[in-house]
Design a protein around this nucleic acid. Structure first.
Lengths: 199, 199
DNA sequence: CTCTTAATGGAACTATGGACCCGTTATGGA
DNA sequence: TCCATAACGGGTCCATAGTTCCATTAAGAG
């Protein structure tokens, strides 16, 4: 019996997983990582406490599974035709997500959880790898068009757009509005044009 | 009896606080935020359990106090004479701090704790405000020298240097070496020169 | 449809984080 | 130096997170 749910993943098992992940997300968004315990999750999900402990074991383990679930729901990138437009669209998408009360708190909680366990950290990294790879092509295309220096690290440019937004969310604080998003996108474009991301 | 330690802060009380904060920092660095409980802190600090619960009450409250203690120990900024030099020095300082096993884990844990409670969040913001204000003058001077456009938000430039490093530490992962630090500094300078941080 | 068994979940148990009581210590002002 | 009391800390109690056991349910193969 390795990995409960791997042999009979259909029907009830899938319903239980969905209910548990949903409850976990709710609690994380409302109360934060520190107040998450599996007993509470089981109660909210209307699922047996034993089931939750058996399948996920620890809080960080549950968050890791939540992250792989989140990674599966990736949105397609924008295609505005220009580098500025695409990156600004990305910045605003990230900004709206982080500024949304539920989503923002969820991300903060998930990142906090990733702080505590390598397994969860890896799940988080995979999540961002997915997102970055989804958006990197718009930078690649700009390089092909000659808008950016050859050898520019496309993925690094995409990360540079998100970084200031996450920095505000997690560390330094400050407003997370559309102006912040646009500034992040503009700064990334300007730095990329100047060759700051050439490998 | 508001705020235990506010009326007789000397002698034993100060020693207890130092021992507790030291123990808390050790545990956070070694095991992370999730495994921090006040009973354990009291044991390590060789201090009465009751004392810890009375003075700090919760894990996040203790971390908040730890943060104000950390904010008091600010390093003076570098003065290399050039904007690039100063910001690169700042980037490398941050990078060395975050890459150091103990310090890096401590920062991750402290930020995770700040995720869970407004009081702690505010303490964290104050911590970064202190740091940013310490370094902002080197950008101001560059503006005065005409190296950067008038109206450039100096503090925002400083934040732009740290952001990519924290983004790696907390969210996306990836190497945190000197090359990363220099890239962050270069990108911030390039963006600032292009006017991306003009208010 | 039937049967095997994967997976769930109720219930009882244990370990421990956190709260409280009250006696002890030592700070800091007179 | 002395004293009022701020602050500490040992001991005890309680709520509950997490574990274990076993009966019940239903997935999915034939």
């Amino acid at each position: 019996m390795e990995e409960p749910g791997s042999i009979r993943p259909g029907g009830r098992t899938a319903r239980v997983r969905a209910a548990v992940l949903r409850a976990a997300g709710d609690i994380l968004a409302e109360r934060g990582f520190a107040h998450l315990d599996l007993t509470d999750v089981a109660r909210r999900a209307e699922v047996g406490k034993t089931t939750v402990y058996r399948r996920w074991g620890t809080v960080t383990g549950l968050v890791a599974d939540l992250l792989t679930d989140m990674a599966d729901q990736s949105l397609p990138r924008a295609r505005t035709g220009s580098l500025e437009g695409d990156l600004r669209a990305n910045a605003r998408l990230v900004q709206r997500t982080l500024a949304d009360p539920r989503q923002g708190n969820l991300f903060r909680a998930v990142i906090a959880a990733a702080t505590c366990e390598p397994r969860t950290t890896e799940a988080l990294h995979r999540f961002y790898d997915t997102r970055v790879r989804e958006w990197a092509p718009c930078v690649e295309e700009a390089i092909d068009r000659g808008e950016l220096p050859a050898g520019t690290d496309a993925e690094e440019v995409v990360r540079a757009v998100s970084a200031p937004l996450y920095y505000r969310l997690l560390a330094a604080g400050g407003p997370l509005d559309e102006a912040t998003a646009d500034q992040a996108a503009n700064a990334a474009v300007a730095a990329a044009r100047a060759g700051a991301f050439v490998r």
